[in-house]
């Protein structure tokens, strides 16, 4: 499969890098695992939400990497996952462990449902269509009626394990899920399907010659991305313990794109955490400077877009500019 080769060559050292990243990712995971024993409740909550957002950021990066498309409608699938968890707890009385897989499946199905009518769109058309999707989210939630809790939203209080601190569960579940998603994505990169998607993105005609149509690639990339976003939403609902229509607006979707761009489209653990932290911690730290948050996000987006022709070069440039400052 010569084109599969060229795809692999297009990112030299991809395999070596993913292997090289293993010790660092392991260290990062160990660090994250011992955080609750060292930091207070505020940070446990904050980092828990960070990790949930990191999964959501991954869904945007995935679509960017494998589909070559920009989505500013990811808040739809985020809301889907979040409300799946909240409503299943309210109606059926099951915890997030049961509803998270359901959320993922529903995300994939609705991802396909959206991707099918928009399978012929790409570039700006898809961006505008996803924008319209994001705009529709709050009113669709309200349409569900009292089951979804209306404007006030719902609480997510049921924890999977009995007898263990709920706050700790709200922290460790996102951690485990984030690690699992990153691991699965690393495997996907080396899988037949992953290579096929990359081929379809870079050399659509060659991919079609191998019987892998662009339309199918689009559906697959979108469905997987939607599934990841729904998982992120489910984690977010559990970590933040509440869902409401206000949390899933067009801004949410734009901020997720900001997170993805700031993480340089990374599908790794570190990048995802940087993206998740950027969109979670900045508003918390700058709580009294609320109006400056969009300005900061906009600047970050511009800096990366203008500087970043290639992620690695941009990162070196950024590192030089920050003069060894913290990455996230």
């Amino acid at each position: 499969m010569p084109d599969g080769m060229s795809v692999a060559e297009a990112r030299p050292g991809a395999r070596a890098r993913s292997l090289g990243a293993l010790p660092r990712d392991g260290l990062l995971l160990v660090l994250l695992a011992i955080v609750p024993s060292m930091l207070g409740g505020f940070w446990i909550y904050g980092i828990g939400v960070c990790m949930a957002n990191a999964v959501a950021v991954l869904s945007v990066s995935f679509l960017l990497r494998y589909g070559g498309e920009v989505s500013i409608g990811q808040s739809f699938f985020l809301a889907l996952g979040a409300y799946c968890v909240a409503m299943m707890e309210r109606e059926v009385g099951v915890s997030v462990v049961v509803s998270l897989p359901v959320a993922a499946v529903v995300g994939v199905v609705l991802g396909l449902a959206f991707a099918w009518p928009s399978r012929a769109l790409s570039g700006i058309y898809l961006a505008v269509a996803t924008m319209a999707l994001a705009l529709a989210v709050p009113e669709l939630i309200l349409l569900l009626g009292p089951v979804a809790g209306g404007y006030e939203g719902l609480y997510v209080s049921r924890a999977p394990l009995v007898g263990v601190s709920v706050d700790l569960q709200r922290y460790y579940l996102p951690l485990v899920a984030l690690a699992a998603v990153v691991l699965l994505l690393a495997h996907f990169r080396r899988s037949r399907q992953g290579l096929a998607l990359l081929t379809a993105r870079d050399h659509p005609r060659a991919a079609e010659a191998f019987g892998f149509s662009r339309g199918y690639a689009r559906l697959a990339a979108f469905a997987i991305s939607a599934g990841i976003a729904a998982i992120g939403g489910a984690l977010l609902a559990f970590a933040a313990s509440t869902v409401s229509p206000n949390s899933y607006t067009l801004w949410t979707a734009i901020y997720l794109l900001v997170g993805s761009v700031v993480s340089l489209g990374s599908l790794g653990l570190f990048g995802a955490l940087v993206g998740g932290a950027f969109i979670t911690l900045v508003p918390q730290v700058l709580a009294s400077w609320g109006d400056w948050v969009p300005i900061l996000y906009g600047l970050a987006l511009l800096v990366v877009v203008v500087l970043g022709d290639r992620p690695a070069e941009a990162l070196t440039k950024l590192r030089k500019r920050l003069a060894g400052g913290r990455g996230g």
Binding site: E69, V70, I72, G123, I124, A127, I254, L257, V258, V261, D291, W292, V293, P294, I295, L296, Y297, G298, L299, A300, L301, L302, V305, V306, D309
Partner: peptide, 26 residues
């Protein structure tokens, strides 16, 4: 930026939009 890729320039305008939105509020 947009000479290199359409989408990159478009993402850039989102950044400008965020800055202007924040500036209006400030």
């Amino acid at each position: 930026v947009s000479e290199r890729s359409d989408l990159r320039g478009t993402i850039g305008t989102l950044g400008i939009g965020l800055i202007l939105q924040g500036a209006t509020q400030v």
